[in-house]
Design a protein around this nucleic acid. Structure first.
Lengths: 248, 248
DNA sequence: CGGAAGCTTGAATATGCTCAACACGGGTGG
DNA sequence: CCACCCGTGTTGAGCATATTCAAGCTTCCG
């Protein structure tokens, strides 16, 4: 039991739903007063979805927002003829939904099995209007997402297929282990080859070939198509063509 | 003389610098109280830059922010080996600068001749902390930029060269005339072929060839390499592969 | 007028795509 | 238990689109 859990247990004002939610600490709920959290949680519901299920449709009017509690959510857009582009991935405890939007403008799907904490639009917006700190937290996340989107634009526009796939693996790896204290790391891919292709602007065949190439060159090893081991994260990083994202 | 100008003239509290600035109305300054505007303007300076001049470097620490008063600013990122990607264009009265960032993370260059209104970092951040409405305005702009970035990711990842060039022209055309009351429109390109190529993730040769193709198919006509006339904006839109951005 | 920068065009090439076959694993049902 | 199937992923061969390299043109400006 961690310190923060113990504190929560002794503090009757923290709602059950929020006890073990990451959004309570690092997510948007981290800036809320006890009374605000209580009020919001009364309106919130936990939602569970299987991998592949749609969460939000492009054209849907926005009736609720959510925090990602567990799993990976895939944001995508499609062209008329069906071509698809994944424009973002959201992990816990990210906030989900286009604030102030009329409609969503993009699709959100469960990439893995996910748990969300869904809250009604009006409840959140009322809270934002009342508490500037919440608006600040949302601004921070939006700025982070914008940075990520622009970083990815470089990948989409200027990198080779090989660099794209390496960049994707590097993204997932560093997300697993942000500090990367260790030079070796392994993880399960949260996306199918098809999703990866749509994220990278490639075909599944090309993605597959580049996986093979990275494997044969010893940069990664693959088990069961989904489990990736990276022996030396630096070597992977050097395969990315390298973006900005410089270590300070 | 417009109503708002007359009002400003009769109101001695509106600083000279701000009299004809778009940011005063549609930009970030639109949410400021008179006293706040006065305080901010005392710290602000108008800055003029020629096309091609660098405004902000990737690695620069952030010491000031700015509003675009006139012209077009190009945001870009480069890979180690020099490959470049334009990740955004900013027009008046957009806000310029990565709020809360340690360094800029991207380059900002004058795409055309530009005028900026530059304010010191501390002055703006103090104002943001004091006035939640300003934070709200910044959040709105950031959300808009995020929408645009994601829209462009589709263009970069999934469109053909021809659709990319059409999408670029459509972007500029609709920016000139957001209502597009008229089906015909003409304008000067604010970017060189090289910048356009870097925006679209193509080479200049491919961009040039697609311009020629669009011209030969009668969708656009070109004068002096820079001046574009679109006879029927709908026809151009249909060449874009079509994104989302649905008219409501 | 001459030179430079920006743009266009052409021919050959390469990178990633398409189409097609096959492999692997997990689940279902005989 | 094995046979079969379906979803997912891999591999190969041929092809298409965009790139590269090279030459020539237009516009601007001294």
């Amino acid at each position: 039991m961690t310190d923060s859990e113990r504190k929560d247990v002794h503090n009757s004002a923290v709602p059950n739903l929020c006890q073990n939610c990451e959004a309570r600490h690092r997510g948007i709920c981290g800036v809320l007063e006890e009374s605000e959290l209580l009020e919001l949680s009364r309106n919130s519901r936990q939602v569970v979805r299987k991998a592949g299920e749609q969460l939000i449709n492009d054209a849907d009017p926005i009736e609720s927002y959510a925090s990602v509690m567990h799993g990976v959510v895939k944001l995508s857009k499609v062209l008329e003829d069906g071509r698809q582009q994944v424009v973002g991935l959201q992990f816990a405890p990210d906030f989900l939904g286009r604030l102030y939007g009329r409609e969503s403008n993009l699709n959100a799907d469960a990439a893995s099995d996910v748990e969300l904490c869904r809250m009604p639009r009006a409840a959140l917006e009322a809270l934002v209007a009342k508490n500037p700190a919440l608006e600040g937290r949302l601004l921070e996340q939006t700025l982070r997402e914008l940075d990520e989107a622009r970083e990815w634009m470089v990948t989409l526009g200027r990198k080779t297929a090989n660099e794209k796939v390496a960049s994707f693996l590097y993204l997932i790896a560093t997300h697993k282990d942000p500090t990367h204290e260790d030079s070796a790391i392994s993880f399960d891919l949260p996306l199918t080859r098809s999703d990866i292709a749509d994220f990278l602007g490639l075909t599944i065949e090309t993605v597959s070939r580049q996986f093979t190439k990275l494997r044969k060159s010893g940069i990664i090893s693959i088990k069961n198509h989904r489990h990736i081991s990276v022996a030396d994260i630096e070597k992977l990083r050097r395969s990315c063509g390298y973006g900005s994202r410089i270590k300070s």
